[in-house]
Structure formats: C-alpha cells, structure tokens
Design a binder for these strands. Structure first.
Lengths: 260, 260
DNA sequence: CAAAATAACACTTGTTATGTTATAAATGTT
DNA sequence: AACATTTATAACATAACAAGTGTTATTTTG
C-alpha cells in the first residue's frame, strides 16, 4: 500500500468515524507512528483534517465539510456512476454543454470516450482536460474567472451562450428540495439558467446527498429537465414528490453492480 | 547538463540550422547515440520536430513553423524587452486586453507586476498563468479553441468583446509591410480587429524580424495604433515609411542595455 | 550489405518514503 | 511545582523506487 492510498484510507476512516488515533493507525497499516504523523501532517496541510494530540479529527459540521477539497475526496464512486449514466445520453458527433462543478468536470473528462464531439463549457477543468484532445471541438464560454468555482461567469458567458445551440446540456446542482433546484451563488445560477435552453435536451446531475437541501437562490424546477441523474435513491419523501410529479429519476449504478 | 536542457539546446540548434545529426549531437553533448535518440523521440512526441534517418529536422515552411510550440522557443530576449516596454503603458488598476500569440502570452504573465489589474484575453496560456493570481480579475473571452494558436476564436469571442471596454489593447502580429499589418488566418484577424476598438488606447507588438513580410489577410494599418513596440530597428526602408507617416516606433531595449 | 533505429537489459544516479534515534513539548500525577 | 509519562518534532540513515543513461543484441531501412 502506497502513501497516497494510505492517506485516502485515513480520510475514509475520518469521514466515517470522525476521529482517528495515531497508534491505532500505525498498527492497522503496519507502519511506524512517524509515518502516520507525516500522513496526518500532509492532510492537515491540505486543509482537510485537524491534528489533535494522539490523532486527528475532521471538523465536522463546520468549515471542512463545505470545503471543496473535502468534497473532492468524497463520492468518487458516485461520480463514476453518474458520468457513466450521462454518457449514455451522448453519441459521437453531438454537441454538449457542460457547466461548472467537480461532477461536471469529471463528466467532461470522460467525454473523450464519445468523440468526435463539440464541447461547450465555462468549466476551466474541462478546458484544461480537453484542449489538446483530437476529435474534440472545444468552445469556451469565456467570462470572469471565479477561483471558488474554477469556472467563468458573468455577462460575457451569457452573451456567448446566446447564439449557441447544442444537443444536450448538463447542469449540476448542490441542492434540491421538493421539485426545486437551488444554488448558493446568484452569478452561477444565471449562467446555469442561460445554459438550459441552449440544449435541445437538458440533464440535471445531482449527488443523492444533495436532496432535501436548499440554498439561497432558486435555479429551476425539476420538470424543466429531461433527465435527472443521481447516484443513489434519495429519501422516501423526496422520491415520492418527484414520482408524484410524473418525473423519472435515473439512479446510476456502478457498472459492476449493474445487471447485464 | 540535464535532459531538459539538452533537449532545449537541440531545439536551438534546429531553429538555427534547420537540421541536426544524431552522431553529431552525441559527440557534442558527450552522451550516447541512444540518449540522443530518446531526446529526439521526446521532441517528436511533443510535436516540435520530425525524426529523419540519421537525425531530425524542423519542417520548415509548413505546419511546424506556424505552430505556437515552435515560436514559443524563439526570441526570448526580444520578448522580455518588448514586455518591459509594454508594461510602461500599464498602471495598477487598469483593465487590459491581450490577444493570442506567444509574445502576448509572455506579456500576460508579466502583468502580475502591475496588479491589481483586469485582464481580458482569448489566450489560453495567459488564462493558465493568471487564473490563480490574486489581484488579477481574469476575463476569458471564450470561443472555439485553436490548438494551433493556443487561444479561442470565433463568434463567441467577438460577441464577448462587444460589451467590454478596457484602458488598453495589446495586439501582436506576425507580418508588417509598409504601413499595413497582416495575419495568415482570417479567424484570428477578426478577433484582433474586434479587440482594437475595445481599448481606449491600442498597442501593436511586433518582432523586428516580421517587418517587410505580408500574409494573406490584412489586419489593420499602422496609424490605427497608438503605440508600436518592436525589439530592434527594422530595415531602413521600413523605418522610413513609418517615420514619413508621422508614426513613432518604440524600440524596446533590454534593461541592462538601457541608459539609466 | 551497411548504417541506423529500436528493443531489452543492466547500471548509475537521484528522489521519495520510511524507520530510528534523539530531543523537545505537552499532558497527567503526586 | 516537580516529576514521570506520553506524544510530537527534528535529524539523520537506510530502503524502495523511479529516471536517465549506456551497452548489447536484434530489427529495420536505404
């Protein structure tokens, strides 16, 4: 087991247990305490944990949980599964709009499997990934760069969209409540809204943990989307509301779990 | 001498001589032929050279010369000097438009010296460099990515510019003849033209080797620019024409050569 | 056939990861 | 407060790994 794997495993333990002990970890991974200390130092420098005497904790409920570096480490599986499901909506030759966010970035990188494609995005991570891929026509939407979201927003982005049409738009969101979709940032909402009508079809991507949450700004209602992809079933209530409205939720399964 | 340095040196030789021999290089750098082969393989994979039996060439006159990766490696000194001169036109707090090209990219990276700034560009190298700089408001113009120019172009770029105004625009060019400025690509011309009126002032950047050349598309006439910066004096004829037209050419000197 | 290119292996070198020991800091106990 | 005990840090040494290079054998090219 390599360093990186071990640190990831430590994070998993922290996410589930909230706290770990140095001695414990050293024994469990069969390495010296010093090595564990160094691992914890690394993770602390990354800003995802906090060292305490004898071990480390995740500052649950506060800053860390909402930190993108924390979220980054979570739900890799979910992203794989959701990207898998999203790719089924795409055929070579199509044009695809993708918005900001780490889920969208992951999907963006997966798009090379379906080339040739035209990819329209304001997501800097996608631009970096696809810029030098042959068979991908990359159209950047431009705009004012936001390091918080690692994407471009604003009027430039919106007027750029005004004259573009694609076969499908992928929109991701951090909060769904009932039939409404939310986002904490108004600027981001505007861009996402502008993207929606530019796709002939429109697909929402949402992690199952984001159901039953709201945020400051309403982005859309679920019936505006042709597809809604998530990684696991949400709460019964949430599910019932969606089904009562006659909408279908696509629960993405990992390939291995999927019935052939 | 490390691998990277040696490869760079090989590129320098190629740029000046157009061709190199394996045996020759092996002797010159005191390494085995195999090592030279590996260096050439690397450079070929990068796409900047072409291996031929016994050595390698730069595909002069065709794709490679117009490839940004090739130009990248040329005339570092000239770029430093011209960027120096261009920076004198900029004060903190201003907004600056910069176009595509390796000269522009170099200037873009230098802009952090004048922060806070707003930087508007379609140049991917500048976006990469300034994205995570504090004190720089980065506005990407978006557009369709061109790997040849490592920048974004097209209608998205142009409509993005339509509503933007900046204190100064920097336009670079590969060809000047008489009082006319040229570029080989129509798409690029359109974007550069769109940028020019968006700056209250407009500055042309041109390497002295580019005088007395034309290209397929006319971009502008020199009197449309408020400043023209180059690195060395062009031919007498070229200089005379410019001075007769009442225009001033700024010859950028390296700091060390400059009178205090 | 001769020259050159490639592939496979071995050797060297440099980097990264880890463990050990020694020292310092923090905590707990009397 | 003084001491003992635990935990953390620092410094060095070693081990594991990766990168770079050279040698030789084999294949390809002219």
């Amino acid at each position: 087991m390599k360093r990186e794997d071990r640190q990831k495993a430590i994070m998993d333990l922290l996410v589930t247990h909230g706290e770990v002990e140095v001695d414990n970890l050293a024994e469990q991974f069969a390495v010296s305490k010093m090595t564990i200390h160094r691992d914890l130092d690394d993770l602390e420098t990354e800003g995802v944990i906090r060292k305490i005497r004898g071990g480390a904790t995740i500052e649950s409920g506060t800053r860390f949980e909402s930190d993108f570096r924390f979220r980054e480490r979570q739900s890799q599986d979910a992203k794989v599964a959701m990207a898998e499901a999203a790719l089924k909506l795409i055929d070579p030759g199509m044009s695809v709009i993708i918005n900001d966010g780490s889920m969208a970035a992951f999907l963006g990188k997966s798009l090379i499997k379906k080339r040739p494609l035209t990819v329209i995005t304001n997501n800097a991570a996608i631009m970096d990934a696809l810029r030098n891929e042959s068979g991908i026509t990359l159209i950047s939407l431009g705009g004012c760069y936001s390091s918080k979201f690692n994407a471009y927003f604003g009027s430039v982005t919106e007027v750029g969209l005004a004259n573009l049409r694609a076969d499908i738009s992928f929109i991701s969101t951090p909060a769904i409540s009932g039939l409404e979709v939310f986002h904490m940032d108004d600027m981001v909402v505007k861009t996402k809204r502008a993207m929606m009508p530019c796709g002939t079809r429109c697909c929402l991507l949402v992690n199952h943990t984001r159901f039953d949450h709201t945020a400051l700004h309403k982005l859309a209602t679920l019936d505006e989307f042709d597809y809604i992809i998530t990684d696991k079933a949400p709460s019964k209530d949430a599910l019932a509301i969606i089904e009562n409205a006659g909408l279908t939720l696509t629960i993405a399964q990992k390939d291995s779990e999927e019935p052939s």
